[in-house]
Amino acid sequence: MVDILIFVYENFFDSGIYPSNSTLQTRLFAAGFNEKEVNLTLDWFDHLDKLSVAAETNQELNTTIRCLHAQEQEKISASIWGFLLFLEQNNIISPSQREWVLSSIMSLDINEIDLERVKLITLMILWRQGQSSETLLLEELLHENEFLLH
């Protein structure tokens, strides 16, 4: 899924417009991504849309303290957790968006994830939700290490 997110970022982010799922699906298949990965990614984007609607009515997360579960601690390094807390404390992401990032990380089929991939996932979440001012700052952070595959 991360490779598809990189592709989406490199091909669509600068336009500021998110393509429809059918357009995106066609482009991803044309780029050589397999059907299973494409469908998982499109499902992930659809899930983000549903969570966005639910979060608008749920303010409970704004007043809670979040600790990582043991399984999350195995996958999420202290630097990644610190980065997410930094974004949240500086109002770049909301507590709900933090949870979406954490959920996305945990759903990846890898043991550990690096900070650059977390930045990309966070950027995709903000972009999908139309939060352009926040995505500009995160994009700046993303390009600090120029990790994108070329």
Rank of each mutant, 00 (worst) to 15 (best):
M1H: 08
D3G: 04
I6Q: 14
I6Y: 10
V8A: 04
E10D: 06
N11R: 03
N11H: 04
F12T: 03
F12G: 02
S15P: 03
S15G: 12
S15V: 09
G16I: 13
G16T: 13
I17S: 13
I17N: 13
Y18T: 14
N21G: 15
S22N: 14
T23N: 08
Q25G: 04
T26K: 11
R27D: 12
L28H: 04
F29D: 05
F29M: 10
F29W: 02
F33C: 03
F33E: 01
F33W: 09
E35P: 00
K36M: 06
E37T: 05
L40S: 12
T41F: 08
L42H: 02
F45P: 03
F45I: 11
F45K: 03
H47Y: 09
H47D: 11
L48M: 15
D49T: 09
D49F: 02
K50T: 03
K50C: 00
S52A: 12
V53E: 12
V53R: 10
V53M: 09
E56K: 13
N58C: 02
Q59Y: 08
E60I: 11
C67L: 13
C67P: 01
C67H: 10
L68S: 07
L68G: 07
H69C: 00
H69E: 03
E72R: 01
Q73W: 02
Q73V: 12
S77K: 05
W81R: 00
W81D: 01
F83M: 13
L84S: 09
L85N: 07
L87T: 07
E88H: 10
E88G: 04
N90C: 09
N90I: 08
N91C: 04
I92M: 04
I92D: 01
I93D: 01
S94L: 09
S94E: 08
Q97Y: 09
L102S: 07
M106L: 14
M106I: 06
S107F: 01
S107P: 00
L108Q: 14
D109T: 07
D109Q: 12
I110C: 12
I110W: 04
E112L: 11
I113W: 07
I113T: 06
D114V: 15
D114H: 15
L115F: 05
L115W: 03
E116L: 14
R117A: 06
R117E: 07
K119A: 07
L120P: 11
W127F: 15
G130M: 02
G130W: 02
S132K: 15
S133A: 10
T135N: 05
L138M: 11
E140P: 01
L142A: 09
H143P: 06
H143F: 15
E146G: 08
L148P: 00
L149C: 01
L149Y: 05
